[in-house]
Design a protein around this nucleic acid. Structure first.
Lengths: 219, 219
DNA sequence: ATCTATATTTCGAGG
DNA sequence: CCTCGAAGTATAGAT
Protein backbone atom coordinates (compact mmCIF):
# COMPACT_ATOMS: atom_id res chain seq x y z
CA UNK A 1 0.00 0.00 0.00
CA UNK A 2 1.23 3.41 -0.96
CA UNK A 3 0.17 6.49 0.97
CA UNK A 4 0.60 9.92 -0.51
CA UNK A 5 -0.35 13.13 1.21
CA UNK A 6 -0.53 15.89 -1.36
CA UNK A 7 -2.21 19.06 -2.41
CA UNK A 8 -4.04 17.86 -5.47
CA UNK A 9 -7.04 18.31 -7.72
CA UNK A 10 -9.02 15.34 -9.00
CA UNK A 11 -11.27 14.73 -11.99
CA UNK A 12 -13.46 11.71 -12.56
CA UNK A 13 -15.12 11.04 -15.87
CA UNK A 14 -17.14 7.87 -16.13
CA UNK A 15 -20.62 7.10 -14.89
CA UNK A 16 -20.75 10.81 -14.09
CA UNK A 17 -18.36 13.72 -14.23
CA UNK A 18 -16.97 15.01 -10.97
CA UNK A 19 -14.29 17.45 -9.93
CA UNK A 20 -12.35 18.06 -6.73
CA UNK A 21 -10.74 21.51 -6.48
CA UNK A 22 -7.16 21.87 -5.23
CA UNK A 23 -6.75 20.87 -1.57
CA UNK A 24 -4.63 18.66 0.66
CA UNK A 25 -5.80 15.03 0.68
CA UNK A 26 -4.67 11.44 1.18
CA UNK A 27 -4.21 9.38 -1.97
CA UNK A 28 -4.22 5.66 -1.21
CA UNK A 29 -2.91 3.18 -3.79
CA UNK A 30 -3.56 -0.43 -2.89
CA UNK A 31 -1.85 -3.64 -3.97
CA UNK A 32 -4.71 -4.51 -6.33
CA UNK A 33 -4.09 -1.25 -8.22
CA UNK A 34 -7.17 0.49 -6.85
CA UNK A 35 -6.94 4.13 -5.85
CA UNK A 36 -8.92 6.23 -3.42
CA UNK A 37 -8.76 9.89 -2.40
CA UNK A 38 -9.71 10.75 1.17
CA UNK A 39 -10.43 14.03 2.88
CA UNK A 40 -9.92 14.41 6.63
CA UNK A 41 -13.49 13.46 7.53
CA UNK A 42 -15.95 10.61 7.08
CA UNK A 43 -14.60 7.16 7.95
CA UNK A 44 -16.29 5.15 5.25
CA UNK A 45 -16.47 6.91 1.94
CA UNK A 46 -13.60 8.29 -0.14
CA UNK A 47 -14.14 11.58 -1.97
CA UNK A 48 -13.20 9.85 -5.18
CA UNK A 49 -11.94 6.41 -6.13
CA UNK A 50 -11.38 3.82 -8.82
CA UNK A 51 -12.33 0.26 -8.00
CA UNK A 52 -10.24 -2.68 -9.16
CA UNK A 53 -9.50 -3.94 -11.69
CA UNK A 54 -7.86 -0.77 -12.97
CA UNK A 55 -4.52 0.51 -14.18
CA UNK A 56 -2.44 3.51 -13.11
CA UNK A 57 -0.44 5.57 -15.58
CA UNK A 58 1.90 7.66 -13.49
CA UNK A 59 3.45 10.76 -15.05
CA UNK A 60 5.44 13.36 -13.04
CA UNK A 61 2.56 15.60 -11.94
CA UNK A 62 -0.48 13.65 -13.12
CA UNK A 63 -1.80 10.18 -12.34
CA UNK A 64 -4.34 8.66 -14.67
CA UNK A 65 -6.28 5.71 -13.30
CA UNK A 66 -8.39 3.92 -15.90
CA UNK A 67 -10.53 0.80 -15.93
CA UNK A 68 -11.83 -1.49 -18.62
CA UNK A 69 -15.11 0.40 -19.01
CA UNK A 70 -13.19 3.52 -19.99
CA UNK A 71 -13.83 5.37 -16.76
CA UNK A 72 -10.98 7.64 -15.72
CA UNK A 73 -9.74 9.18 -12.52
CA UNK A 74 -7.17 11.91 -13.05
CA UNK A 75 -5.19 13.13 -10.07
CA UNK A 76 -3.15 16.28 -10.59
CA UNK A 77 -0.50 16.59 -7.88
CA UNK A 78 0.44 20.13 -6.99
CA UNK A 79 2.70 19.47 -4.01
CA UNK A 80 3.61 16.20 -2.32
CA UNK A 81 4.06 16.28 1.45
CA UNK A 82 4.52 12.59 2.12
CA UNK A 83 4.96 9.44 0.08
CA UNK A 84 5.54 6.02 1.61
CA UNK A 85 4.85 2.40 0.70
CA UNK A 86 4.31 -0.72 2.81
CA UNK A 87 3.97 -4.45 2.32
CA UNK A 88 0.91 -5.91 4.02
CA UNK A 89 0.60 -9.50 2.89
CA UNK A 90 -2.77 -11.20 2.57
CA UNK A 91 -5.61 -10.35 4.94
CA UNK A 92 -7.55 -13.17 6.61
CA UNK A 93 -10.73 -11.10 6.16
CA UNK A 94 -13.70 -10.22 8.28
CA UNK A 95 -15.63 -12.73 10.34
CA UNK A 96 -19.25 -11.70 10.78
CA UNK A 97 -22.06 -12.74 13.01
CA UNK A 98 -25.63 -11.56 13.27
CA UNK A 99 -26.61 -11.11 9.65
CA UNK A 100 -29.67 -12.33 7.84
CA UNK A 101 -28.34 -15.87 7.35
CA UNK A 102 -28.04 -16.39 11.09
CA UNK A 103 -31.48 -14.88 11.67
CA UNK A 104 -32.92 -17.32 9.15
CA UNK A 105 -31.10 -20.19 10.84
CA UNK A 106 -32.49 -19.27 14.25
CA UNK A 107 -36.05 -18.89 12.93
CA UNK A 108 -35.77 -22.24 11.16
CA UNK A 109 -34.86 -23.76 14.51
CA UNK A 110 -37.78 -22.06 16.28
CA UNK A 111 -40.61 -21.53 13.77
CA UNK A 112 -43.11 -21.22 16.64
CA UNK A 113 -41.75 -17.69 17.15
CA UNK A 114 -43.53 -16.79 13.91
CA UNK A 115 -46.83 -18.38 14.90
CA UNK A 116 -48.01 -20.87 17.53
CA UNK A 117 -47.74 -24.41 16.26
CA UNK A 118 -45.79 -23.50 13.11
CA UNK A 119 -43.62 -26.29 11.73
CA UNK A 120 -40.82 -25.92 9.23
CA UNK A 121 -41.29 -27.41 5.77
CA UNK A 122 -37.86 -26.30 4.59
CA UNK A 123 -35.36 -23.45 4.40
CA UNK A 124 -34.55 -21.91 1.03
CA UNK A 125 -37.63 -23.46 -0.57
CA UNK A 126 -36.87 -23.33 -4.31
CA UNK A 127 -39.13 -21.52 -6.80
CA UNK A 128 -38.66 -20.41 -10.39
CA UNK A 129 -37.78 -16.88 -9.31
CA UNK A 130 -35.50 -17.83 -6.43
CA UNK A 131 -35.65 -19.53 -3.04
CA UNK A 132 -38.17 -18.58 -0.37
CA UNK A 133 -36.31 -18.05 2.91
CA UNK A 134 -38.59 -20.28 5.00
CA UNK A 135 -41.66 -22.32 4.17
CA UNK A 136 -43.78 -23.37 7.13
CA UNK A 137 -47.06 -25.09 7.86
CA UNK A 138 -49.54 -23.71 10.38
CA UNK A 139 -51.86 -25.69 12.69
CA UNK A 140 -54.63 -25.75 10.05
CA UNK A 141 -52.31 -27.34 7.54
CA UNK A 142 -51.99 -24.06 5.65
CA UNK A 143 -48.75 -23.03 4.02
CA UNK A 144 -46.84 -19.91 5.11
CA UNK A 145 -43.99 -18.31 3.19
CA UNK A 146 -41.59 -16.28 5.31
CA UNK A 147 -39.24 -13.60 4.05
CA UNK A 148 -36.45 -12.93 6.53
CA UNK A 149 -34.69 -9.56 6.58
CA UNK A 150 -32.52 -7.73 9.05
CA UNK A 151 -34.58 -4.64 8.32
CA UNK A 152 -37.98 -4.96 6.71
CA UNK A 153 -38.48 -2.46 3.90
CA UNK A 154 -40.69 -2.12 0.85
CA UNK A 155 -38.37 -4.27 -1.25
CA UNK A 156 -38.91 -7.18 1.10
CA UNK A 157 -42.69 -6.89 0.76
CA UNK A 158 -42.43 -6.76 -3.04
CA UNK A 159 -40.17 -9.78 -3.06
CA UNK A 160 -42.49 -11.78 -0.83
CA UNK A 161 -45.48 -10.70 -2.94
CA UNK A 162 -43.84 -12.16 -6.05
CA UNK A 163 -43.16 -15.43 -4.22
CA UNK A 164 -46.72 -15.64 -2.92
CA UNK A 165 -48.16 -15.01 -6.36
CA UNK A 166 -46.09 -17.90 -7.68
CA UNK A 167 -46.62 -20.30 -4.77
CA UNK A 168 -50.38 -19.79 -4.89
CA UNK A 169 -50.45 -21.15 -8.43
CA UNK A 170 -49.39 -24.52 -6.98
CA UNK A 171 -52.60 -26.34 -5.98
CA UNK A 172 -50.64 -28.56 -3.58
CA UNK A 173 -49.57 -25.53 -1.58
CA UNK A 174 -52.37 -22.97 -2.04
CA UNK A 175 -53.55 -21.04 -0.20
CA UNK A 176 -50.19 -19.68 0.87
CA UNK A 177 -50.01 -16.74 3.27
CA UNK A 178 -46.97 -14.57 3.90
CA UNK A 179 -44.97 -13.26 6.81
CA UNK A 180 -42.25 -10.62 6.74
CA UNK A 181 -39.92 -11.32 9.66
CA UNK A 182 -37.25 -8.77 10.58
CA UNK A 183 -35.50 -7.21 13.54
CA UNK A 184 -37.07 -3.92 12.57
CA UNK A 185 -39.84 -3.10 10.09
CA UNK A 186 -40.25 0.31 8.47
CA UNK A 187 -43.72 1.91 8.66
CA UNK A 188 -44.10 2.08 4.88
CA UNK A 189 -43.29 -1.59 4.62
CA UNK A 190 -45.97 -2.33 7.23
CA UNK A 191 -48.55 -0.36 5.30
CA UNK A 192 -47.76 -2.09 2.03
CA UNK A 193 -47.66 -5.50 3.74
CA UNK A 194 -51.08 -4.89 5.32
CA UNK A 195 -52.45 -3.95 1.92
CA UNK A 196 -51.14 -7.22 0.52
CA UNK A 197 -52.42 -9.32 3.44
CA UNK A 198 -48.87 -10.03 4.60
CA UNK A 199 -48.26 -10.32 8.32
CA UNK A 200 -45.31 -8.52 9.91
CA UNK A 201 -43.35 -10.08 12.75
CA UNK A 202 -40.47 -8.32 14.47
CA UNK A 203 -37.97 -10.71 15.99
CA UNK A 204 -35.38 -9.96 18.62
CA UNK A 205 -32.00 -11.45 17.84
CA UNK A 206 -30.97 -12.07 21.44
CA UNK A 207 -34.35 -13.51 22.43
CA UNK A 208 -34.14 -15.79 19.44
CA UNK A 209 -30.75 -17.07 20.53
CA UNK A 210 -32.39 -17.99 23.83
CA UNK A 211 -35.15 -19.90 22.04
CA UNK A 212 -32.52 -21.74 20.06
CA UNK A 213 -31.76 -23.91 23.07
CA UNK A 214 -35.29 -24.03 24.45
CA UNK A 215 -36.92 -25.57 21.36
CA UNK A 216 -40.47 -24.48 20.53
CA UNK A 217 -41.22 -22.85 23.84
CA UNK A 218 -44.58 -21.03 23.82
CA UNK A 219 -45.15 -17.44 24.93
CA UNK B 1 -5.33 12.83 9.77
CA UNK B 2 -3.34 10.17 11.52
CA UNK B 3 -2.08 7.14 9.63
CA UNK B 4 -0.94 4.07 11.50
CA UNK B 5 0.39 0.94 9.86
CA UNK B 6 0.27 -1.87 12.36
CA UNK B 7 -0.19 -5.56 12.87
CA UNK B 8 -3.49 -5.53 14.70
CA UNK B 9 -6.69 -7.40 15.45
CA UNK B 10 -10.05 -5.67 15.44
CA UNK B 11 -13.41 -6.36 17.05
CA UNK B 12 -16.65 -4.59 16.25
CA UNK B 13 -19.73 -4.99 18.39
CA UNK B 14 -22.73 -2.99 17.33
CA UNK B 15 -25.26 -3.58 14.60
CA UNK B 16 -23.47 -6.91 14.24
CA UNK B 17 -20.46 -8.59 15.78
CA UNK B 18 -17.36 -8.89 13.65
CA UNK B 19 -13.76 -9.87 14.18
CA UNK B 20 -10.56 -9.30 12.22
CA UNK B 21 -7.74 -11.71 13.05
CA UNK B 22 -4.19 -10.44 13.54
CA UNK B 23 -2.67 -8.99 10.34
CA UNK B 24 -0.97 -5.87 9.04
CA UNK B 25 -3.39 -3.09 8.15
CA UNK B 26 -3.80 0.67 7.84
CA UNK B 27 -5.65 2.41 10.64
CA UNK B 28 -6.88 5.85 9.59
CA UNK B 29 -8.00 8.37 12.21
CA UNK B 30 -9.62 11.46 10.77
CA UNK B 31 -10.05 14.95 12.15
CA UNK B 32 -13.71 14.31 12.93
CA UNK B 33 -12.71 11.42 15.22
CA UNK B 34 -13.82 8.72 12.82
CA UNK B 35 -11.70 5.62 12.42
CA UNK B 36 -11.34 3.13 9.58
CA UNK B 37 -9.24 0.02 9.10
CA UNK B 38 -8.09 -0.79 5.58
CA UNK B 39 -6.56 -3.91 4.04
CA UNK B 40 -4.35 -3.66 0.96
CA UNK B 41 -7.21 -4.18 -1.50
CA UNK B 42 -10.56 -2.68 -2.46
CA UNK B 43 -10.54 1.09 -2.98
CA UNK B 44 -13.90 1.89 -1.54
CA UNK B 45 -14.72 -0.08 1.55
CA UNK B 46 -12.76 -0.36 4.78
CA UNK B 47 -12.63 -3.73 6.53
CA UNK B 48 -13.97 -2.09 9.65
CA UNK B 49 -14.86 1.43 10.65
CA UNK B 50 -16.66 3.73 13.06
CA UNK B 51 -18.53 6.66 11.60
CA UNK B 52 -18.59 10.05 13.25
CA UNK B 53 -19.64 11.25 15.70
CA UNK B 54 -17.57 8.96 17.89
CA UNK B 55 -14.89 9.07 20.58
CA UNK B 56 -11.53 7.33 20.81
CA UNK B 57 -10.15 6.05 24.09
CA UNK B 58 -6.51 5.34 23.46
CA UNK B 59 -4.66 3.02 25.83
CA UNK B 60 -1.12 1.71 25.15
CA UNK B 61 -1.99 -1.40 23.14
CA UNK B 62 -5.73 -1.01 22.69
CA UNK B 63 -7.90 1.65 21.06
CA UNK B 64 -11.59 1.74 21.88
CA UNK B 65 -13.77 3.73 19.52
CA UNK B 66 -17.32 4.21 20.75
CA UNK B 67 -20.34 6.13 19.52
CA UNK B 68 -23.51 7.39 21.15
CA UNK B 69 -25.49 4.26 20.19
CA UNK B 70 -23.09 2.14 22.23
CA UNK B 71 -21.43 0.54 19.23
CA UNK B 72 -17.76 -0.22 19.80
CA UNK B 73 -14.73 -0.76 17.63
CA UNK B 74 -11.78 -2.21 19.52
CA UNK B 75 -8.38 -2.19 17.84
CA UNK B 76 -5.67 -4.25 19.51
CA UNK B 77 -2.25 -3.16 18.28
CA UNK B 78 0.36 -5.87 18.25
CA UNK B 79 3.19 -4.04 16.50
CA UNK B 80 3.28 -0.54 15.04
CA UNK B 81 5.33 -0.03 11.88
CA UNK B 82 4.44 3.55 11.10
CA UNK B 83 2.60 6.39 12.81
CA UNK B 84 2.29 9.87 11.33
CA UNK B 85 -0.17 12.76 11.49
CA UNK B 86 -0.98 15.57 9.06
CA UNK B 87 -3.01 18.74 8.96
CA UNK B 88 -5.32 18.98 5.95
CA UNK B 89 -7.56 21.96 6.45
CA UNK B 90 -11.12 22.05 5.12
CA UNK B 91 -11.99 20.33 1.84
CA UNK B 92 -13.99 22.25 -0.78
CA UNK B 93 -15.88 19.03 -1.59
CA UNK B 94 -17.00 17.21 -4.69
CA UNK B 95 -18.72 18.83 -7.66
CA UNK B 96 -20.97 16.40 -9.53
CA UNK B 97 -22.71 16.37 -12.86
CA UNK B 98 -24.87 13.84 -14.64
CA UNK B 99 -27.10 12.39 -11.97
CA UNK B 100 -30.77 11.53 -12.04
CA UNK B 101 -31.91 15.01 -11.04
CA UNK B 102 -30.24 16.50 -14.09
CA UNK B 103 -31.66 13.78 -16.32
CA UNK B 104 -35.14 14.58 -15.01
CA UNK B 105 -34.55 18.27 -15.61
CA UNK B 106 -33.49 17.68 -19.21
CA UNK B 107 -36.47 15.40 -19.91
CA UNK B 108 -38.82 17.95 -18.37
CA UNK B 109 -37.42 20.49 -20.81
CA UNK B 110 -37.81 18.13 -23.79
CA UNK B 111 -40.73 15.75 -23.09
CA UNK B 112 -41.02 15.05 -26.84
CA UNK B 113 -37.99 12.78 -26.44
CA UNK B 114 -40.29 10.40 -24.57
CA UNK B 115 -43.03 10.48 -27.19
CA UNK B 116 -43.94 12.69 -30.13
CA UNK B 117 -46.17 15.54 -29.03
CA UNK B 118 -45.78 14.87 -25.31
CA UNK B 119 -46.31 17.90 -23.10
CA UNK B 120 -45.26 18.25 -19.48
CA UNK B 121 -47.99 18.44 -16.85
CA UNK B 122 -45.49 18.77 -14.01
CA UNK B 123 -42.30 17.45 -12.45
CA UNK B 124 -42.49 15.70 -9.08
CA UNK B 125 -46.26 15.21 -9.38
CA UNK B 126 -47.38 14.51 -5.82
CA UNK B 127 -49.23 11.32 -4.82
CA UNK B 128 -50.01 9.70 -1.48
CA UNK B 129 -47.03 7.37 -1.81
CA UNK B 130 -44.56 9.95 -3.07
CA UNK B 131 -43.95 12.17 -6.08
CA UNK B 132 -44.00 10.85 -9.65
CA UNK B 133 -40.86 12.06 -11.45
CA UNK B 134 -42.69 13.44 -14.51
CA UNK B 135 -46.34 13.56 -15.48
CA UNK B 136 -47.04 14.20 -19.17
CA UNK B 137 -49.95 14.35 -21.57
CA UNK B 138 -49.84 12.64 -24.96
CA UNK B 139 -51.45 13.83 -28.22
CA UNK B 140 -54.70 11.94 -27.43
CA UNK B 141 -55.03 13.77 -24.12
CA UNK B 142 -53.96 10.64 -22.24
CA UNK B 143 -51.85 10.85 -19.11
CA UNK B 144 -48.36 9.34 -18.93
CA UNK B 145 -46.39 8.82 -15.73
CA UNK B 146 -42.61 8.73 -16.20
CA UNK B 147 -40.12 7.22 -13.81
CA UNK B 148 -36.63 8.55 -14.44
CA UNK B 149 -33.58 6.49 -13.44
CA UNK B 150 -29.93 6.54 -14.35
CA UNK B 151 -30.12 2.76 -14.67
CA UNK B 152 -33.48 1.09 -15.09
CA UNK B 153 -33.81 -1.98 -12.88
CA UNK B 154 -36.64 -4.04 -11.42
CA UNK B 155 -37.05 -1.64 -8.51
CA UNK B 156 -37.88 1.17 -10.92
CA UNK B 157 -40.59 -0.90 -12.59
CA UNK B 158 -42.09 -1.84 -9.22
CA UNK B 159 -42.06 1.77 -8.11
CA UNK B 160 -43.75 2.96 -11.32
CA UNK B 161 -46.29 0.14 -11.04
CA UNK B 162 -47.33 1.39 -7.60
CA UNK B 163 -47.70 4.92 -8.92
CA UNK B 164 -49.76 3.77 -11.90
CA UNK B 165 -52.06 1.71 -9.70
CA UNK B 166 -52.71 4.79 -7.59
CA UNK B 167 -52.99 7.32 -10.44
CA UNK B 168 -55.47 5.10 -12.28
CA UNK B 169 -57.86 5.34 -9.34
CA UNK B 170 -58.19 9.06 -10.13
CA UNK B 171 -61.01 9.39 -12.73
CA UNK B 172 -59.65 12.77 -13.81
CA UNK B 173 -56.36 11.20 -14.87
CA UNK B 174 -57.24 7.61 -15.84
CA UNK B 175 -56.23 5.89 -17.98
CA UNK B 176 -52.60 6.54 -17.06
CA UNK B 177 -49.84 4.73 -18.92
CA UNK B 178 -46.22 4.43 -17.77
CA UNK B 179 -42.76 4.99 -19.16
CA UNK B 180 -39.47 3.96 -17.58
CA UNK B 181 -36.81 6.35 -18.87
CA UNK B 182 -33.15 5.62 -18.17
CA UNK B 183 -29.71 5.84 -19.70
CA UNK B 184 -29.55 2.05 -19.58
CA UNK B 185 -32.27 -0.51 -18.90
CA UNK B 186 -31.52 -4.03 -17.65
CA UNK B 187 -33.08 -6.93 -19.61
CA UNK B 188 -35.02 -8.22 -16.60
CA UNK B 189 -36.46 -4.76 -16.03
CA UNK B 190 -37.58 -4.69 -19.66
CA UNK B 191 -39.31 -8.05 -19.29
CA UNK B 192 -41.13 -7.01 -16.14
CA UNK B 193 -42.05 -3.65 -17.69
CA UNK B 194 -43.46 -5.34 -20.80
CA UNK B 195 -45.52 -7.63 -18.57
CA UNK B 196 -46.94 -4.58 -16.81
CA UNK B 197 -47.60 -2.67 -20.03
CA UNK B 198 -44.90 -0.14 -19.22
CA UNK B 199 -42.90 1.32 -22.07
CA UNK B 200 -39.11 1.52 -21.80
CA UNK B 201 -37.20 4.48 -23.25
CA UNK B 202 -33.44 4.72 -23.15
CA UNK B 203 -32.18 8.28 -23.22
CA UNK B 204 -28.72 9.47 -24.09
CA UNK B 205 -27.42 12.10 -21.74
CA UNK B 206 -25.32 13.99 -24.28
CA UNK B 207 -28.06 13.90 -26.93
CA UNK B 208 -30.48 15.21 -24.35
CA UNK B 209 -28.19 18.11 -23.56
CA UNK B 210 -28.36 18.95 -27.25
CA UNK B 211 -32.17 18.90 -27.21
CA UNK B 212 -32.11 21.18 -24.22
CA UNK B 213 -31.29 24.13 -26.44
CA UNK B 214 -33.30 22.97 -29.45
CA UNK B 215 -36.68 22.87 -27.66
CA UNK B 216 -39.10 20.14 -28.72
CA UNK B 217 -37.36 19.25 -31.93
CA UNK B 218 -38.91 16.23 -33.65
CA UNK B 219 -37.03 13.14 -34.86
C1' DA C 1 -20.50 -12.59 -17.59
C1' DT C 2 -24.82 -11.30 -15.73
C1' DC C 3 -28.18 -10.85 -12.36
C1' DT C 4 -29.84 -10.85 -7.44
C1' DA C 5 -29.78 -9.52 -2.82
C1' DT C 6 -27.26 -7.51 0.99
C1' DA C 7 -24.85 -3.72 3.47
C1' DT C 8 -22.35 -1.90 10.37
C1' DT C 9 -24.32 0.45 3.42
C1' DT C 10 -23.56 6.24 3.32
C1' DC C 11 -25.68 10.38 1.96
C1' DG C 12 -28.96 13.83 1.11
C1' DA C 13 -33.63 15.78 0.79
C1' DG C 14 -38.11 16.56 2.55
C1' DG C 15 -41.85 16.27 5.85
C1' DC D 1 -35.86 13.73 13.95
C1' DC D 2 -37.47 10.24 11.05
C1' DT D 3 -38.34 8.40 6.55
C1' DC D 4 -37.38 7.56 2.05
C1' DG D 5 -34.89 7.19 -2.23
C1' DA D 6 -30.38 7.51 -4.69
C1' DA D 7 -25.51 6.15 -5.06
C1' DG D 8 -19.94 6.45 -9.89
C1' DT D 9 -23.44 2.77 -4.59
C1' DA D 10 -19.73 -1.71 -3.49
C1' DT D 11 -19.68 -6.51 -2.73
C1' DA D 12 -20.63 -11.36 -2.52
C1' DG D 13 -23.08 -15.23 -4.28
C1' DA D 14 -25.70 -17.70 -7.71
C1' DT D 15 -26.92 -18.71 -12.45
Amino acid sequence: MRLVIARCSVDYVGRLSAHLPLATRLVMVKADGSVSVHADDRAYKPLNWMSPPCRIEEAPGVWRVVNKAGEELRITLDEIFHDTAFEFGPDPGLQKDGVEAHLQELLAASPAVLGAGFTLVRREYPTAIGPVDLLCRDTDGGTVAIEVKRRGEIDGVEQLTRYLELLNRDPLLAPVTGILAAQEIKPQARVLAADRGIRCVTVDYDTLRGFDNADDRLF
